[in-house]
């Protein structure tokens, strides 16, 4: 909890390497308080991007929003997530009942960015609760307390989802998705990914480039049982294992080949790709 607390306070600038114009786009959206939808495969940097943007908008030296204590509220969505979980509930406290804001309400009141990660995992009736926050009204009705909260001027709603592995059943309702501007993420090219792996994994540029090449080649197999290819995050894991003294081949075996597939043939092919690409 302590680490979550520290993360939501964003005391340290998260490291993020822009790939395109996503930073400018997000800043423009924030200035107009337009809700943002981040689309992209798993492990491509969506969450890191939100953290970076929250730091940039709320913690930067010349930010007018520095007084906000917790600039980023992240909710990992799942199928049992209810509107109550987002908005808040009464809790028993001794002989009394106490209202406890949910993460969404907390962000709405405090002016933070509320980030609903993997939002399609939540039930569709749950996500409907955000509708009134995403248009000109910017209000959050709380049924149980009878409140209608006007969102703080600095509040912004950001959601992410991964179109790649979602089934037809787990798509966003059009009435929800058309309330957001959409930023698409994908895995970076070899050059950018090399820099990311080198920085995050703590390995030299030469090995990082080899790992990035492995990522690029393995992604060519993405239709064979794994929809999205290997994520940048997994390549960083491999690099981190190497930095801890594991051999690069073994690190790729556990962090890449073993992590993306259970199909023995695909795994064998990935191992062969790793074998020829690593020195």
């Amino acid at each position: 909890m302590a680490s979550n607390d520290a993360a939501s306070r964003l005391l340290v600038e998260p490291w993020y390497l822009p790939v395109g114009d996503e930073v400018q786009m997000f800043e423009a959206a924030y200035r107009s308080r337009l809700p943002v939808l981040l689309k992209g495969p798993t492990g491509c940097g969506k969450t890191r991007f939100v953290e970076y943007m929250a730091w940039r908008l709320y913690r930067h030296a010349d930010s007018p929003h520095r007084e906000i204590e917790r600039p980023l509220v992240t909710v990992a969505c799942h199928e049992d997530l209810t509107a109550t979980d987002l908005v808040g509930r009464y809790l028993l406290s001794g002989d009394a009942t106490v209202w406890m804001d949910g993460p969404l309400t907390f962000a709405v009141r405090s002016g933070a960015i509320c980030y609903l990660d993997e939002v399609v995992e939540a039930r569709k009736d749950t996500t409907v609760v955000v509708h009134s926050l995403t248009d000109h009204r910017r209000v959050l009705p709380i049924e149980k307390t009878g409140e209608l909260i006007d969102a703080h001027a600095d509040f912004l709603l950001v959601m992410s989802y991964n179109p790649g592995y979602q089934s037809v059943l787990k798509d966003l309702k059009p009435s929800t998705r058309q309330r957001f501007v959409s930023l698409e993420f994908t895995y970076p090219g070899v050059e950018v990914e090399t820099r990311i792996i080198s920085h995050e994994g703590g390995v030299d540029a030469q090995l990082a480039q080899r790992l990035a090449l492995i990522g690029e080649k393995v992604r060519n197999l993405r239709e064979h049982g794994f929809e999205e290819g290997v994520s940048t995050r997994l390549l960083v894991y491999a690099a981190q294992l190497v930095a801890r003294g594991i051999t690069p081949r073994r690190a790729c075996d556990v962090a890449v080949a073993g992590a993306v597939t259970d199909d023995p043939h695909v795994r064998e092919a990935i191992t062969a790709i790793v074998d020829v690409l690593l020195p």
Binding site: K217, N220, L221, H265, V266, A269, A272, V276
Partner: peptide, 12 residues
Amino acid sequence: RPIALFAQGLYG
């Protein structure tokens, strides 16, 4: 199969 996947991965 694994060698075909190996080829596909490297060739694209």
